[in-house]
């Protein structure tokens, strides 16, 4: 389940930062559904065209849980740009999500 994987070309003066995100959820639980909606909304608003988001259902890939050190869910892992960050929760606190992703909201 991969959304919007196109890479934005160098068309701005600032170097384009590409965000690589993975969202781990558990089926269609309340938290999971909210998290998916919230993440998509935040990405579309602040990272339009410069992110890749993979949504993974841990129930379907249980071995991933150990490999990725998953405890709390939903979990959003930002592997790029560095430093890697892990965000847990339903992503309803937009301010914290942005802080976690390293996006300044001044603009």
């Amino acid at each position: 389940m991969s959304d919007n994987t196109d890479i934005t070309p160098f068309n701005e003066d600032e170097e384009v930062i590409h965000y690589e995100l993975r969202l781990f959820i558990t089926g269609a639980s309340f938290n999971s559904r909210r998290a998916v909606v919230n993440v998509k909304e935040i990405c579309e608003t602040y990272l339009k065209d410069r992110y890749s988001l993979e949504i993974i259902d841990v129930y379907q890939q249980k071995t991933l849980a150990e490999k990725e050190q998953i405890i709390a869910l939903p979990l959003l892992i930002k592997s790029l740009p560095l430093p890697a960050r892990r965000l847990i929760g339903d992503m309803s606190d937009t301010e914290k999500v942005l802080k976690g992703l390293g996006i300044s909201i001044g603009t």
């Binding site: 998953i70 929760g89 309803s92």
Partner: peptide, 11 residues
Amino acid sequence: IEETGEYDLDG
């Protein structure tokens, strides 16, 4: 880890 709302320990 950044906590951004409700979560559980399903993991």
